[in-house]
Simulated scan of single mutants.
Amino acid sequence: MRKIAVGQAGGPTAVINASLVGLLDGLYETNTVYAVMNGYQGLVEDDMEPLEEHSLEWVQQHKLVPGACLGSGRYPFTNERMQQAVEQLKRRGIDTLVFIGGNGTMAALQRLSVLAEEMHYKLQVIGIPKTVDNDLSCTDHAPGFASAARYVAMTARDISKDLEAMRNFEQVRIIETMGRNAGWLALSSGYLKTCDCDGPHHIYVPERPLAASQFLSDVQSSVQAFGMATIVVSEGFTFEGTAQVEREVVQGRPVLGGIAAQMEAIVREQLGLTVRSENMGMHQRSAMYAVSEQDLHEAYEVGAKAAEYVTSGLSNRMVSIQRRDTIEYNYDLVPVPLEDVMREGERLLPDIFIEDPARYYTWLQPIVGEPVPAYPAMRRRSVRSS
């Protein structure tokens, strides 16, 4: 019987708990599993508790609940703290460490593995992918992203329809999405468009900085054509020659946010239009009503596959979703070295999708889940003669 420590790290997703349940369903009957509370902080401070029947049942009840039920958060995981974490694991005689997380988590797991070896402690390490930003490398996509993309597409369309009704009062809305340095989420906002008159009319991603003059021209052209302009912008987008807008710095980590408000000010000052900026906020990663059934299924599956890796003795691996080259959507779950994930770093939106959004939406369709009912296109009216 192995002793296994399990934790969640980084920003939650709507389906991160499903991955945890998938893992536990494959491990708890034949192993002792410890829940690591509040991510890496729990490792350092030895805040772990064995999952027994009542606590295991409580975790399983969270399969369809957003957030991270063990606690997650962000924690400065320095080398000194990593050493403390390994010492805590060694003191408890824990054989295996499994964490659910994104790029930072996979890099931390790889460093922990190396450090444990240097400390002459044999530790099996497994990573389970999650992120709403879809910037995790070595996988076709990560659980959590598809549900966030579904939410962003539905919300951007609804906000645009609301603006359509208010064109005699305001003309421009600028909607900011998550994504950090990658534009996957922002570009997904156009997934439900059926014609050019539908919003969003322009989407701006971090991979393509833009001149402020071009942005203003885009807004003007949409207002002239449709009487309004719905803009979606990723939080990591920049105007040419400028830096990313940071809301604040927490524990040394820049928190992006505010580009939409900056764009609002530019439109108001330069074009004199009535404009409003909005941030989609935490619902992007927590809206259970928008969860993709496929995303939920895959989240559970990667957890279950990680349990198989633990049982078979694999180590220093992340579960990866690899899409098959077939007409119908199919995929394999394969182990990839944590070292490769760490080395490749952030996975940005590729040029082929930026330049051909229709191709991106074809790629996105099978993971976004069941179809969303279409709206009728905006009615185009002729100009009245006086």
Rank of each mutant, 00 (worst) to 15 (best):
R2F: 15
R2I: 04
K3Y: 03
V6K: 00
G11D: 15
P12E: 11
T13L: 08
L24K: 07
L24F: 05
D25I: 05
Y34M: 14
A35F: 03
Y40M: 01
Q41H: 02
L43Y: 02
P50F: 01
L51D: 00
E52Y: 14
H54W: 14
H54T: 15
L56K: 04
R74S: 10
M82V: 06
Q84Y: 00
D95C: 08
T96C: 13
L97R: 06
I100L: 14
A107I: 01
A107E: 10
A108D: 09
L112E: 03
E118K: 07
E118C: 00
V125I: 11
P129E: 07
N134R: 08
D135T: 07
D135W: 05
T139Q: 06
A142E: 02
P143K: 04
G144M: 07
A148D: 01
R150L: 09
V152P: 04
M154R: 14
T155V: 00
R157E: 12
D158N: 08
E164F: 05
M166D: 14
E176W: 05
G179Y: 04
A182S: 07
W184L: 05
W184A: 04
W184D: 08
L187E: 06
G190T: 14
K193N: 07
P200S: 10
P200A: 08
P209W: 01
F215V: 10
L216A: 06
L216T: 05
L216C: 03
V219P: 02
V219I: 15
A229M: 14
V233I: 08
G236A: 00
E240C: 10
V245Q: 12
P254A: 07
V255F: 15
L256C: 10
G257L: 12
G257H: 03
G258W: 09
G258C: 15
G258K: 12
I259V: 15
R268L: 15
Q270P: 02
T274N: 14
R276T: 10
R276A: 10
M280F: 11
M282G: 11
A287M: 14
S292L: 14
D295P: 01
L296Q: 15
G303T: 09
K305Y: 08
L314W: 05
S315R: 06
M318W: 02
I321L: 07
Q322G: 09
E328L: 13
D332R: 12
L333W: 05
P337T: 04
V341N: 02
P350N: 13
I352N: 13
I352Y: 12
I354W: 03
I354E: 12
E355R: 00
D356E: 13
P357D: 14
L364H: 03
L364A: 09
V368D: 12
V372C: 01
P373K: 07
A374Y: 03
Y375Q: 09
A377V: 13
R379S: 11
R379C: 03
R384D: 02
R384W: 11
S385A: 10
